[in-house]
Amino acid sequence: MPPEHKLELLQRFNQAFAEAVPFNRALGLRFEDYEPNVAVLRLPYSPKLVGNPESGVLHGGTITSLMDAACGAAVFLALGSPTPIATLDLRIDYLKPAVAQLDVLCHATCTKVTGNVAFVTARAHHPDEEADPIAQGAGTFIIFREGGKTSFMERQR
């Protein structure tokens, strides 16, 4: 449980990020904790997210989605203001299979922000198993700063 002074901000993050983004909401993602450049997100186990119905284990794509969301959230926290970003690349190592019925937490740390790009590393693990992660990842994000050379809309073409 995060300290009390964080609860109000966590609630605001959840409104802006988990509830206002349709796919994050569909997955049931929640902010668990944060630091100035760290986002901790929880993916609740759900039968609809299963990849192998015979084992009940979550689909790898749910871990990818959780990592992408957590890495993006870590960049937003590091930037400190609502700046448009887009994932440039994302690399995930699947270290061990997830266990059926268990939630997955993802710790994402934004390690560096430059004028154009942000770098993030992340680890996904079951609750209370931080030392034995399911997956580790690295993401790179492009930052669309106001007045920058590349506008957000330009990238869409």
Binding site: F23, S65, L66, D68, G72, L90
Partner: peptide
């Protein structure tokens, strides 16, 4: 679309 949906499609 969410990056995770595209990642899931590719995998």
């Amino acid at each position: 679309l969410h990056g995770g949906t595209i990642g899931s499609l590719l995998e």
